[in-house]
Write a protein that binds this DNA or RNA. Sequence first.
RNA 1: CCAGUCGGCCGGACGGUCGCUGCCCGCAACGGCAGAGGAAAGUCCGGGCUCCACGGAAAAACGGUGCCGGAUAACGCCCGGCGGGGGCGACCCCAGGGAAAGUGCCACAGAGACGAUACCGCCUGACGUCCUCGGAUGACAGGUAAGGGUGAAAAGGUGGGGUAAGAGCCCACCGCAAUGCUGGCAACAGGAUUGGCAGGGCAAACCCCACCGGGAGCAAAAUCGAAUAGGGGUGGCCGGCGGGCUGUCGCAAGGCAGGACCGCAGGGUUUUUCGGCCCGACCACCCGGGUUGAUUGCUUGAGGCGCAUGGCGACAUGCGUCCCAGAUGAAUGACCGUCACGUCCGGGCGGCAGCGCCCGGGCCAUACAGAACCCGGCUUACAGGCCGGCUGGCGCU
Length: 159
Amino acid sequence: MTGRLKIERLRTRAEFVNAAKGRRYSTPLFTLQAVDRRERALAPDGPDAARESQEPRLGYTVTKKSGNSVQRNRIRRRLKAALAEATPQLDQGGLVKPRHDYVLVARSTAIDAPFANIVATLTSAFAGVHRPRSSAKARLNVAEAATEVPVSADRDGIR
RNA sequence: CCAGUCGGCCGGACGGUCGCUGCCCGCAACGGCAGAGGAAAGUCCGGGCUCCACGGAAAAACGGUGCCGGAUAACGCCCGGCGGGGGCGACCCCAGGGAAAGUGCCACAGAGACGAUACCGCCUGACGUCCUCGGAUGACAGGUAAGGGUGAAAAGGUGGGGUAAGAGCCCACCGCAAUGCUGGCAACAGGAUUGGCAGGGCAAACCCCACCGGGAGCAAAAUCGAAUAGGGGUGGCCGGCGGGCUGUCGCAAGGCAGGACCGCAGGGUUUUUCGGCCCGACCACCCGGGUUGAUUGCUUGAGGCGCAUGGCGACAUGCGUCCCAGAUGAAUGACCGUCACGUCCGGGCGGCAGCGCCCGGGCCAUACAGAACCCGGCUUACAGGCCGGCUGGCGCU
C-alpha cells in the first residue's frame, strides 16, 4: 500500500459554491457533490496553486437544520471517520478521481446511523456520483441497494 | 434512621486499532510532548486590550445604582452587620433613599375622605297628644364620635375614671412626634423628658436627592499584498508620418542630413497658419487606496497548585513550585473490547426495627452541553452520584 490515497480538505467558501454546481448523488444519510476542477475551475487566469494540484479534495457541510453545535460536530466527525474507513476500498476501485472536488452534505440521520452503514453508503455514493446521468435506472438500483440496510437499522437505533 | 436546611465536589475508567491540530527534533520518513467546560451556553453586568472622539474639567441630556460598613482592578457580584417579614428550629425572603419640594392616581360605596362628617342611634330642653301621674310618643332646638352602617382608610389602641349622654376631657400601659442623653465608624439600638397627638397608600407613576458612566468592539487593530477593474502624478506620442526635392555616401538596394515644396494627422480653443495651449486615447515609469488570501494580535495571566501569616469573612500578603488548547469550512475524534457505577430479580448473613453487607443472573441507560482575544461575576441547563456542617424528630444503650 505505498500509493495510498490522499484526500485534501476544502477550505474556502468559493470552493464549496463551485462544487455545488457539479454532479450530485443523494442517499438517506447525506448528499455527495462532485466537480472536476479542470472543467469548472476557479480563477482561470490566475496562478491558482489548487489548479495545479492533482490531489482530490473533499469538504463537509453540516447545516443548522441538523441540530445544535454538539450534534453538528458529532455528525462531521463520524463522516470523517467513516471516510477514513472506506478509503482503502475507494482507492482500490478508483472511485475517487484526481483533480476532483467533493462535498458531503450531511443529513440529521447520520448522527445515530450504524457506523458500518455509513461506510457502505459512502462507497456506493462515490461510485454513483460519477455515473452518467442518462443511465438513471442503474443509478436507482445502486441507491436502493445502499438504502435498504440503513433504513432498517435506523428503526432499531431510534426507537 | 427519618425529615429538613446550608455549603462543597465528581460528572465515567482502562486497554487496543485508525486518525486530526499545534509545538519540538529532522533533508525527509519515523518519532516525542500537549490537546474543551462547570457551565466552554445566554451575552445580562464589571475590567484588561485595540481603534475613534475629546484642551483640563464641569454641566445638560440619557442610562444605571439605591439601608450601613468592608473587600476588589472593577462591579448591580461577594463578605459582615442593621431593619422588616416567614419558620418550632437550622435557616430563608425583601428594588430596603426621599411622601412636611411639587404634580398625579386611589373605582365604587358612604351623611361625611384631609387639618372632614350628624344618616340611624344616644342624651338634654321647652311644646303638643295619651294615660294607671310617672312614663310613652310626635315634630322642633341643641349636645354627642361610645355603638350601627359604608369603605382600603372614618382622626391613635386597651383598660379605668368621668359625664345628661359622650369625648385624651383626665389617668395607666402600648403606639406616635419633638428634644437632648448613652452605646456603635455607621445603618441602628436602648432608655429619658416633653407634647394629648401632627397622621392614609402608591416613587417597579412623574419627580427630588446622592453616587457611577465618552463611543465602538478581536469581524477591534496592525503589516504584506495576486489577478481583474479603477484613482493620482510625471514623461513620451508631439519639432510627427508619407511623398517629392536638394546635398552626401554607396556598384546597387538603400542610409544619413537639409529645408520658406505637397498631402495626412481624435476633440476643443486662439483673427489665420498641423505653430502654441488645453482635454482625451495609447505607451512607459512612479505613488496611493484596497477585495480573495497570508501574517501578527493569540495566549504568561488581576494564572494554577501547595504552605505560612493576618482577618469572623469576602479577601490580602509572603515563600515555594508548575507552564496547562490555540483551531479559523474551525483540531481536541471514530470504532471495538473489558470493567466500574446504577437499576431490577433471586438467595444468604447481621440487626428489635428502619436498614446495611455479601453472592449469582439480567439490563447496557449515562445528563446539560463544544473553547474562538483574555479575565471577575450573574443567570439559565444538567442523568446519576459523593462528602461535610447544622436543625427537628424517632429508636436503642
